[in-house]
Amino acid sequence: MLSILKSYGVMLVLAMGKTIELCLISLVFAMVIGLIFALCNVAKNRTLNVIGTVYVDAVRGVPLIVLAYFIYFGVPAGIQAAGAADFRLSALQAGVIALSMNCGAYMAEIIRAGIESVDRGQMEAARSLGLTYGMGMRHVVLPQAIKTMIPSIINQFIITLKDTSILSIIGFPELTNVGKTIMGNTFKSLETWAIVGVMYLIVIVSLSKASKRVERRLNVGR
């Protein structure tokens, strides 16, 4: 155990950093994707509703590992076949795209539910004053929706952090992938995976604790 920590400690911590980096970048994109498709879903426009539903259903209906393979191998192969012979996606790029798409679909549902939890009268009052739909969303509905969404968003954040491990299969040097390398070098599988597991555990438990604190603070203001 100690020998692994001594020889690979720095590598493991760096890999944890990579994991968090991948997760954070994906989460930012996922929020944007989620907001766009959530707005599609709550709009009073059939075409937009269909676009929103198709996206959410399609992405939720495909396992992340398949989505990752599709984006890392499938998409570049298709683009190369279409003429751009030197098109490549790095493991980070493909990983961020796959995770953002996946997390974005769940985020869209969280944001949609948040928007729908706000009383319809709020938007009606905004519109009755002459404010546009967009202004009503921005100044009145979304700020109230975010309060109810925060616990679910943090939960999704934790899920996404764990999902980064799936991207070890496209060779991104995140924590799980580095764990595989260490195991290959040392053959100490029990120790290696125990260390990797504890590292995930520490980060995720501190996240949940922080989220509980945020939740409590929000409830006080209510």
């Binding site: 009383d119 009268g121 009606e124 009052a125 905004a126 109230q144």
Partner: peptide
């Protein structure tokens, strides 16, 4: 317009 349930912006 004034509504039955006030609809003040809660935020």
């Amino acid at each position: 317009m004034v509504f039955q349930h006030f609809n003040l912006f809660n935020n």
